[in-house]
């Protein structure tokens, strides 16, 4: 990953932004005597660039004012390029990737980032807007990254990240993978599913979680009942709905009152029969990290449920 970013920086140094590549080529063709010299020196240029690349990459430092962007940086960007992430990312509850020692945790205040002199500050759609405005006024490059609440918005978010961070193989691969999964024709809903999240909340048709279920070939029972957004769902409703797959959300091994419903004995029968799928907590606060994985896993789960069902019928 780091190599890819270094290469981007190298290109920028080789071909300054105010000189278009095509224009440069035209000028070079007009100066044939110089062309042979340049062609001869080209391998040395590359060697020189390889030597200076780490220094240049380290200078292109990025700071984040958003928890999800923090995770994108920590997971997919070279550590030396990360100047600062939000204080929430100091908590392992939100962070899976290691936190480099040099990375400063910020609390969304302009003065914290100002002294770090980042080359780029990434900010989310909501939150830390005052700090972003102040940093812009002070001349820092601040880029808004839109939040994602649907599959289409996820692709847009990846585009925005790629545009801001430059070429990045991990981001590009994630985008390709997501688009490939989305391009696959959704299997007609042969199996039903219901999400039981913290505090007995379920997800309706307008939510990303519901879209992922449907894309994986499940019929979201909450959406079928007309839920558009978040809705309360009691254990009684879960039992009565009899979904083929019960989808739990987050809830680590640690006890939480919010996840008490998942520990109720009536849910155990779903666990015992393997009809449970747990969405990672990251899907809630940074879907771009895990959406493709979740979609893939949900598809596999549906196939395994279908094969179990056909085995039973035989």
């Amino acid at each position: 990953m780091a190599g890819q970013f270094g290469f981007t920086c190298r290109l920028r140094i080789c071909w300054p932004r105010h000189v278009p590549v095509d224009g440069l080529r035209r000028r070079l063709s007009a100066q044939n005597d110089k062309l042979s010299m340049i062609l001869l020196l080209r391998p040395f240029f590359f060697l020189l660039l390889l030597v200076v690349a780490p220094t240049i990459s380290a200078e292109s430092r990025v700071a984040s004012l958003n928890l999800c962007i923090d995770q994108v940086l920590l997971n997919w960007v070279a550590p030396q390029r990360i100047a600062s992430v939000t204080w929430l990312s100091g908590d392992e509850h939100y962070r899976k990737a290691p936190l480099p020692e040099h990375v400063v945790l910020n609390r969304g205040r302009a003065e914290e980032l100002l002294r770090l002199h980042p080359d780029l500050v990434l900010v989310g759609q909501y939150g830390a807007q005052r700090a972003a405005k102040r940093l812009r006024e002070l001349g820092l490059r601040v880029v808004d990254i839109p939040d994602a609440y649907s599959l289409a918005q996820l692709v847009q978010q990846l585009d925005a990240l790629q545009q801001a961070l430059g070429d990045n193989s991990a981001l590009a691969a994630q985008r390709r993978r997501l688009q490939q999964l989305l391009a696959e024709s959704a299997v007609p809903g042969g199996a039903s599913a219901l999400i039981l999240s913290a505090n007995n909340i379920t997800y309706g048709s307008g939510m990303l979680e519901s879209q992922l279920l449907e894309r994986a070939g499940f019929e979201n029972l909450a959406a079928r009942d007309g839920a558009g957004q978040l809705r309360r769902v009691s254990l009684e409703e879960v039992v009565a709905a009899q979904p083929d797959l019960l989808v739990l959300y987050g809830g680590d091994d640690e006890f939480a009152l919010a996840h008490l419903a998942e520990r109720h004995p009536v849910i155990r029968r779903y666990v015992d029969s393997g009809r449970v799928f747990t969405l990672p907590a990251e899907l809630g606060f940074c879907p771009v990290l895990v959406a493709a994985d979740v979609l893939q896993q949900l598809k596999e789960k549906r196939e395994s449920l279908a094969s179990k069902s056909s085995d039973r019928h035989q």
Partner: peptide
């Protein structure tokens, strides 16, 4: 330590019989 912990505490202080079973 987090808004989740605070929510848990507040809900506990409000009392509830939801999701309770034989255990």
């Amino acid at each position: 330590p987090s808004m989740f912990a605070m929510q848990e505490i507040v809900f506990w202080l409000l009392g509830s019989l939801a999701n309770r079973g034989w255990d």
